[in-house]
Amino acid sequence: QRLKVEDALSYLDQVKLQFGNQPQVYNDFLDIMKEFKSQSIDTPGVISRVSQLFKGHPDLIMGFNTFLPPGYKIEVQT
């Protein structure tokens, strides 16, 4: 199923809320996405950065996985 802009906004809100006391994490996530948009980093690069940034937050990682193309997935560490 195709995700919409509303889903992206909702996900960004989720990240912002979860790191309400660590706004730098939210800003880092926005920076990663901007680097991807400008093609400074590719999909595997995004996956590497996001998996480090959201380590210990499996719900955010699983939410992020829904935006990844087929064949890509961040494994959740339990």
């Binding site: 195709r2 995700l3 802009v5 992206a8 906004l9 996900y11 960004l12 912002k16 996530f29 926005l30 996405m33 901007k34 991807f36 948009k37 999909t43 995004v46 829904t66 935006f67 990844l68 193309p69 890509y72």
Partner: peptide, 21 residues
């Protein structure tokens, strides 16, 4: 690019960042 939904998320993030959100 083979990741249209990730591009969409990146576009939304860029707009959000631009708004200072």
């Amino acid at each position: 690019l083979p990741a249209p939904q990730l591009v969409m998320l990146a576009n939304v993030a860029a707009v959000t960042a631009g708004e200072g959100g």
